[in-house]
Simulated scan of single mutants.
Amino acid sequence: MPKGPGWLHWVDLASPDAATSRAFYCELFGWSVYTLTAPGYGNYNIFTLDDVHGPEVAGLQMLTDDSQPPSWTCYFRVEDLRGTVDTIIDQGGQELIPPTDWAGLADMALCTDSQGADFGVAKPGLIKGLGATDQPSTVCWVELAAPDLNEGRRFYTEVFGWRATDRDHHGSAYTTWKVGDRSVGGMVLMDDAWPRRYPTQWTPCFWVTDCDATAARATELGATVGVPPTSIRPGRFSKMTDPTGAPFAVITPVRSPGPGAA
Rank of each mutant, 00 (worst) to 15 (best):
A146R: 09
L221F: 02
F237W: 09
A173P: 15
D113P: 00
P147A: 11
H170A: 15
F248L: 09
W31D: 09
T209F: 03
A146Q: 10
P69C: 15
L63R: 08
P16C: 02
G258L: 00
E158D: 07
Q201E: 11
T219L: 14
I251K: 06
P70D: 09
Y174R: 12
R163S: 12
G4E: 14
D51N: 15
D80P: 05
V57L: 05
T157N: 14
C111E: 03
P55S: 10
V208I: 04
D134N: 02
T252R: 01
N45K: 14
T35F: 10
W10K: 04
F155K: 05
M62T: 15
R154M: 02
T176A: 14
G180N: 04
P229L: 08
I89G: 03
G120H: 01
K178C: 03
A164N: 13
P16S: 01
W10C: 05
S21V: 04
T64Y: 12
A223H: 05
V33A: 10
G93C: 04
G125D: 06
V179Y: 00
R77M: 08
P228A: 07
P5Y: 10
G116I: 11
A213H: 07
R22H: 10
T48I: 05
I251F: 07
A213Y: 05
I97K: 13
V85K: 00
H170Y: 14
S67Q: 11
A215S: 08
P204I: 01
T200E: 01
V121S: 12
D65V: 08
D65L: 05
Y44I: 12
